[in-house]
Amino acid sequence: MKTNALTGDVLLGLVPIALVIALWQGLVSFGFAPATLLPPPGLVFARLLQQLVTSTFHHEIAATLIRLFGGFSIAVILGVSIGIAAAANPAINAVVRPIVRVLAPLPKVALYPALLLLLGFKHESKIVLVAADALFPILLSTYYGASTVEQKLIWSAMAAGTPRREILFKVVLPAAMPSILTGCRIGLVISCIVVFLAEMITSTDGLGHMLVTAARTFQAVDMFVPLITISLLGLILNGLLQALRSYLLRGFPEA
């Protein structure tokens, strides 16, 4: 029964995607756009399958994934630890709060030229940019989750003999987990966007670079392949995060 409902949901979710592809095909078939500029979806998916077995394409995907994971992981580690520390300690909060207020609304991509000069064209500059952009949603939601932990959970643990310094790990961190994971979800989407953007602006490899190179030489089919690939990667990663979320939050009421 439950698996039936699940497959039903998945099938229902495929309908709008099928509609978009149908619209795409329609645009090409009825001649609204020349096939040289907007290739039919069948052609793009055929090229994607063809590319998927080549080692150069693997290299591009690997480059993008390394940057995505590198940046996202740094953002999670820093965001969660700073968020928890700020919620636990007023002195740390007094330092962190103004910095966050100034940096959070800053378009981090504006830092990219500086990062390129400082760190070069390889992974480092992109990883730092992804981390900088994904950090704030994770930090802010961790801070919010950690500072709204029910006081009586903490009291219950302290009365049971948990020392104050262990409360952070034994109560605050697990209690803030729903907010932390919500922040991670937003951070992951941002990471996907930013890594692609950085590779489009300046890079020597990666999916974003593939797209720009194809676009500049009017190879329309090759231009759409990385686009579809990053969407699929985003879909898979989000699915994995969702699975992790349902596992970690299995005891929480609204998960």
């Binding site: 009586k152 009365a159 049971a160 697990p174 209690a175 970690l248 009421p253």
Partner: peptide, 15 residues
Amino acid sequence: PDRGPVFQEFALFPW
């Protein structure tokens, strides 16, 4: 641990 509280809100660890 010599004084054990029981709260109206239960305050059980949801995880």
